[in-house]
Write a protein that binds this DNA or RNA. Structure first.
Length: 274
DNA sequence: GCCCAGGAGTGCA
DNA sequence: TGCACTCATGGG
């Protein structure tokens, strides 16, 4: 077991896990058990130091984005002098963006469309239980995210039974496309090209593509626009546009390479009613 | 019963 | 291109 320690001011387990970027975690011990792909980690903090315990330290060091200097990002974010953003930076400075698994993000965010977070978590969990390998971590059982082949072997009814609703066909077709083509063609694309390529998947529109690019491909110049961001745009930026694509262009033009980080601070801050 | 949830596909003007 | 309609499902 490896142990990673980090200053809690810039690594808060709750804020990092609860902000809507990840759906596979649960309360465990004094903190949380976090699952990514087929790996697990135990994340906890005493308020001074945050600790991640895991079998693969290198993987989770990257997963938790620990090479990135968040003090720098927050300083930049506060320079925009947007009250909501500054309040969020102050209270949620420990929110880190995760570097997650590409395939897992594609499925997760297709499921997320027109859906709520508790239900999304339940659906993903049932898909993993149905098709993923059983594993154990620190005495607790969990299921790995299914392999490409396992997902492609499932029929439409499997996804329906997992509670996906009308998204069952999207997931079914996505599984076939990934098995057929792999994800290699999505490597080394710039963000606009990646976004276009992701939107070739059924059930992936602009917003979902931005989430996959941001969390799965570490494209921090992405800025997903959902119902909450629309609300923030109107109420906190006095914006008048209604077209989500144009709202996205507005924010990425403003925040540039820090768009993704700032989007999360805004999104989470608004949801916490800061 | 209603409305909403980290929206997107489809058809029609 | 723009816009309305529809799509399961669970929670408040």
């Amino acid at each position: 077991m490896e142990k990673i320690e980090y200053d809690a001011k810039y690594f808060n387990p709750l804020h990092t896990l609860d902000c809507g970027q990840i759906f596979r975690f649960s309360e465990f011990g004094e903190g949380y058990m976090v699952i990514s792909g087929d790996r697990a980690a135990y994340l906890h903090t005493d308020g001074k130091t945050t600790v991640a315990e895991c079998d693969d330290g290198e993987y989770f060091y990257n997963f938790f984005d620990l090479a990135r200097d968040y003090a720098e990002i927050i300083k930049k974010a506060e320079s925009f002098s947007v009250p909501l953003l500054s309040r969020s930076c102050e209270k949620c400075s420990g929110l880190r963006l995760l570097n997650q698994q590409k395939e897992e993000m594609i499925y997760s965010f297709i499921i997320s469309q027109n859906n709520n977070i508790p239900r999304i978590k339940g659906i993903i969990s049932r898909i993993c239980e149905g098709l993923g390998e059983k594993r154990e971590f620190m005495g607790r059982q969990y299921y790995a995210f299914p392999t490409t082949d396992a997902l492609a072997s499932a029929d439409v009814e499997f996804f329906r039974r997992a509670g996906c609703g009308y998204r069952d066909v999207f997931l079914f077709e996505t599984s076939k496309k990934i098995k057929r083509e792999g994800l290699g063609g999505l490597e080394n694309l710039n963000t606009p090209d990646l976004k276009r390529a992701l939107m070739e998947y059924k059930g992936v529109g602009a917003k979902v593509a931005d989430c996959i690019a941001l969390f799965g491909f570490s494209k921090r110049d992405s800025f997903p626009v959902d119902t909450w961001i629309e609300k923030i745009y109107r109420e906190d930026f006095n914006g008048k546009l209604t077209d989500r694509n144009k709202i996205c262009d507005y924010f990425t033009g403003l925040f540039k390479e820090n768009s993704g980080y700032i989007q999360q601070y805004l999104f989470y801050g608004k949801r916490l009613n800061l």
